[in-house]
């Protein structure tokens, strides 16, 4: 007996595979384009030369000093941005929950405000501020992280807010205070360990954003990874594209791995709601 349900399910299966297939094809074309381009050898042959160069770190830094410089700058920026973001947000958000709930709307507003201020606009407004930063702290590319913290603020805020929502900060703090812990101990030994996943996902989002940032660095004439790739693209496109593809694959692998580790509730994976046919649990 084939039945109405089975037929509907088959139709749905076909629809799913066709739709996902077409979309994945569209997504795959430019990626394949990158791969194809980076493996072009002289006279229409295939060659893995570009990738061999890229894997040889000594050679890359010797032949493409700008790329090395940009890469190191971006890594430094990512670390610094994450540190500042955490130092700034975690104590503030915890404290607001514990003692100053009246300020929660203000903090939320400030944290989400950058969503309405595009990076390009931020550059315009930051120009005078950065004149002072350069005057006081020097010209180092690393100070871009001060602006990057603002860029990552909304995403980091949302992750941390979700994390704080999931634990009862107040009860945890009161319980540990009643056991004789000071505020420092409460923060380091009680709150932070419980926020581990949220801190991790906020940090990961920040790193991803910083590594992909181009607008601010370019317009302030600083050299990070993206700017280096952009400039290199004019002279040696192959190595530049190879770096871009490598970064993309790396990002995908990290996200894909996280979707298994963090369970169904992690960064992009969906909430565990049941869809379609509900079966009796065996």
């Amino acid at each position: 007996m084939s039945g109405n349900r089975a037929a509907a399910r088959r139709k749905q299966d076909v629809f799913r595979w066709v739709t996902i297939g077409v979309c994945l094809l569209f997504f795959a074309l430019p990626l394949y384009g990158m791969l194809e381009f980076t493996t072009r050898g002289p006279g229409g042959t295939r060659s893995a030369q570009t990738w061999a160069t890229l894997l040889d770190f000594g050679k890359v830094s010797a032949e493409y000093p700008a790329l090395k410089e940009g890469f190191l700058a971006s890594v430094g920026l990512a670390v610094l941005t994450v540190l500042i973001m955490l130092v700034l947000l975690v104590p503030t958000m915890t404290w607001v929950r514990l003692r100053l709930p009246g300020l929660s709307r203000t903090v939320e507003f400030l944290c989400l405000l950058p969503l309405t201020v595009p990076a390009i606009v931020l550059v315009v407004g930051l120009t005078p501020v950065y004149a002072w930063v350069t005057y006081l702290l020097g010209e180092s590319t690393l100070w871009l992280s001060l602006a990057y913290v603002i860029l990552v603020l909304p995403y980091a805020y949302r992750s941390l807010d979700a994390g704080l929502r999931a634990i009862d900060v107040k009860t945890l703090a009161e319980a540990s205070r009643s056991l004789g812990a000071g505020w420092g101990t409460v923060m380091m030994r009680v709150i932070l360990p419980n926020l581990r996943t949220a801190v991790l996902s906020a940090s990961f989002l920040s790193v991803a954003l910083v590594l992909g940032e181009f607008t601010i660095a370019n317009l302030f004439s600083r050299k990070n990874l993206q700017v280096a790739m952009y400039e290199l693209g004019k002279s040696d496109a192959q190595i530049s594209i190879a770096v871009g593809l490598a970064a993309l694959v790396f990002g995908f692998l990290v996200l894909f791995a996280m979707s298994f580790v963090g369970g169904p509730r992690s960064a992009t994976a969906a909430a565990p709601r049941l869809r379609r046919t509900r079966k009796e649990s065996p």
């Binding site: 430019p30 993206q226 790739m229 594209i241 996200l255 979707s259």
Partner: peptide, 21 residues
């Protein structure tokens, strides 16, 4: 996961990807 990466995949690398294709 793929969409998570591609949604952030703006800028230089994306432009190159399309140029290469």
């Amino acid at each position: 996961s793929l969409c998570g990466v591609l949604a952030q995949f703006g800028g230089v690398a994306l432009a190159f990807a399309f140029l290469a294709s």
